[in-house]
Design a protein around this nucleic acid. Structure first.
Length: 605
RNA sequence: CGGGGUGUAGCUCAGCUUGGUAGAGCGCUUGCUUCGGGAGCAAGAGGUCGCAGGUUCGAAUCCUGUCACCCCGACCA
């Protein structure tokens, strides 16, 4: 039997069907918005396996439940947040001229074999076999399918450019899922794929997408940065990431206010020092350093700063030999840069301690460039050292007072290290700031990597086949929910930005069984708010006030209206703003006007 | 994959060293009293102690294996 979904807001709840009193008719409201009808399970205690705050709060507030490693069920409140993110993403993608489609989440191996990714993708790809023993995968991304669609549908340059997108579940069999929905194995992603006749068209769409992304994250109420990024395996010339700023982020990004330079730390270049190297003041000496291995130990033992030490890392070379990489003691090797250094094998691989001992005769903790019989590449800042300290290539001994050119020749100079807070910006506008970010968006220019291998062509003006050039553009929809919480919470729980909150307003009635006048006032207000277009969560539970307040704070709905016997006698309700904590008494009949003044436009529908 | 850790009630955990009838707090149910920031009292429901072997008169506890989950690392359009 079908429920007539006709009960208008604010009207008699009767839907014309017989509902037994114990089971109130569920179609009374446009959504189930009464807490007596929505089994919300909040947790006072933090579940043991939740590491970061967003994961803890999502579990405590009943937004998601873990089913298995990296797999989550989105519960009613959480799903509403996810839908709000999707909605904004969808609106802005449509506005930017992209076309929504929905591709299969399960994809045939043949397509992935065409581009070679069936073999290249490795264990991250979840492979499935059907009853006919045919191979499939659960899509971690959809370049192949999008390209397949384009090569079948698009015949003429006149149809270009086209930008297809979808919002769909993806699966990546992550080695280690963690941080709740932030690095889940199954997740919701918006992915878009654009097709062009030439680079100029690709550039235009790429820029349009960059603008759309900025609009999306701005509308979501998030603090974010767009940064230059490494294209990674996906290839292509231009690539930028959008990061939500949060201390728990897995990425580090660097930017400069002075010149608007911004890049992932893995990308930001360092330059040779402007100033000449300081003059040598010490003479070379050899010191016994029994048991001293790490830079920290060396610095402590010799009473020098780590910045006076030279770090020697040994990696495998392209010719099968070893190469020494030299860094200042306090600097960190940047693997992506190191892979570009002359003679270094890709992917970067540190040499094993055993092999280093065999080849150099010295243990890992006692290496240094002086007398080292290996090709050497030095970071710019390592070459700026004077009177520095390093291993003596003999166990338990270090050299001090070393100076370039006097004690050893200058090796090849290269940019090998990560930038650090305060390093000069490549843009020349001052010092870099470094912060942690959560990658929530990534845009790429793919070029013809996929379209060429899959022969995705159109005819140009001259009737000649031209391989289309492609861009792709991703947004981690479910990850955004976690990232937003990382950025917006306090000691009492989540503090949703208005556009993301599962509800616009939470209405709390104090002691529902005590005062008929208060109950009537609360129900009237509830209906009025709904009629005005607000999505209202009505806490009509027969629970103690403290419990309701605590739940309201935990769930984080931005605007709270409390109706109780005390206030109703004076014709008042109480308003509280979740973020600022400010409270005000508001006349029961003034609530709508009051909220209107405090909120952005009530959402449509 | 390497290293570390944990599996006992829905959740957080104790009990295990030294084997002897399964525990606490929170949550849940019922009643009474309460009621504007996570109430009090009383009475309840709820666990084949991850699973499989083994040792033993007897195993949550000891042994072996196995599975799951978590943390660190490597990895990550």
């Amino acid at each position: 039997m079908k429920h007539p979904d006709t009960a208008a807001r604010g009207q008699d709840p009767s839907c014309g069907l017989e509902c037994r009193p114990r089971y109130p008719c569920p179609v009374r409201d446009p959504f189930v918005m009464r807490l007596t009808q929505l089994p919300l399970t909040t947790l006072k205690e933090t579940p043991a396996d939740a590491e970061i705050i967003s994961h803890q709060l999502m579990l405590r507030a009943g937004l998601v439940r873990r089913l298995s490693s990296g797999l989550f069920t989105w519960m009613p409140l959480g799903l509403r947040v996810l839908r709000r993110v999707e909605r904004i993403v969808r609106e802005e993608m449509n506005r930017a001229g992209a076309l929504e489609i929905l591709m299969p989440a399960v994809q045939p191996a043949e397509l992935w074999q065409e581009t070679g990714r069936w073999d290249l993708y490795g264990d991250l790809l979840l492979r499935i076999r059907d009853r006919h023993e045919r191979d499939y995968c659960f899509a971690p991304t959809a370049e192949e399918v999008a390209t397949e669609i384009a090569r079948r549908e698009l015949r003429s340059y006149r149809q270009l450019p086209v930008n297809y997108y979808q919002i769909n579940t993806k699966f990546r069999d992550e080695i280690r899922p963690r941080f709740g929905v932030m690095r889940a194995r199954e997740f919701v992603m918006k992915d878009a794929y654009s097709f062009h006749l030439d680079q100029a068209s690709l550039d235009a769409t790429y820029d349009t997408m960059a603008d759309a992304y900025a609009r999306i994250f701005t509308r979501l109420g998030l603090r974010f940065r767009k940064v230059d990024a490494d294209g990674g395996e996906i290839g292509g010339s231009r690539s930028q990431e959008f990061h939500v700023l949060a201390d728990s982020g897995e990425d580090r990004i660097a930017w400069c206010e002075g010149d608007s330079y911004a890049a992932n730390v893995e990308m930001a270049p360092t330059a040779p020092a402007d100033l000449p190297r300081p003059p040598a003041t010490q003479s070379l000496a050899r010191i016994a350093t029994p048991g001293v291995r790490s830079i920290d130990e060396v610095a402590a033992f010799l009473q020098v700063s780590a910045t006076q030490c030279l770090k020697t890392l040994v990696v495998e070379g392209t010719d099968g030999g070893l190469i020494a990489l030299l860094l200042r003691g306090d600097h960190a090797l940047n693997p992506i840069k190191a892979e570009r250094a002359p003679g270094v094998a890709r992917p970067l691989k540190l040499a094993s301690p055993e092999r280093i001992l065999t080849v150099t005769g010295a243990p890992v903790g006692s290496l240094g460039p002086v007398t080292l019989k290996l090709p050497q590449v030095a970071d710019h800042s390592a070459l700026h050292l004077a009177d520095f300290v390093c291993g003596a290539n003999v166990a338990d001994a270090h050299l001090t007072g070393i100076n370039w050119e006097r004690d050893l020749p200058l090796p090849t100079a290269f940019d090998l290290r990560n930038v650090e807070n305060g390093d000069p910006s490549p843009g020349g506008g001052g010092a870099l700031t470094i912060a942690r970010g959560i990658e929530v968006g990534h845009i790429f220019q793919l070029g013809d990597k996929y379209s060429r291998s899959m022969h995705a062509v159109v005819l140009d003006q001259d009737g000649k086949e031209r391989v289309m050039t492609m861009g792709c553009y991703g947004i981690g929809v479910s990850r955004i929910v976690g990232a937003a919480i990382e950025q917006n919470h306090d000691a009492n729980g989540i503090v949703w930005p208005e556009p993301l909150s599962p509800f616009d307003v939470i209405l709390i009635e104090i002691n529902p069984k005590k005062s008929e006048a208060a109950t009537a006032a609360a129900n009237t207000l509830y209906n009025e708010l709904q009629n005005a277009g607000y999505e209202v969560l009505f806490d009509d539970r027969d629970a103690r006030p403290g419990v309701k307040f605590a739940d309201a704070d935990l769930v984080g709905i931005p605007h709270r209206i409390v109706v109780g016997e005390r206030g109703v006698k004076e014709g008042k309700a109480e308003y509280r703003h979740r973020q600022s904590g400010t409270e005000e008494q508001v006349g029961l009949t003034d609530v709508l006007d009051f909220l209107r003044a405090r909120r952005e436009v009530p959402r449509q529908g």
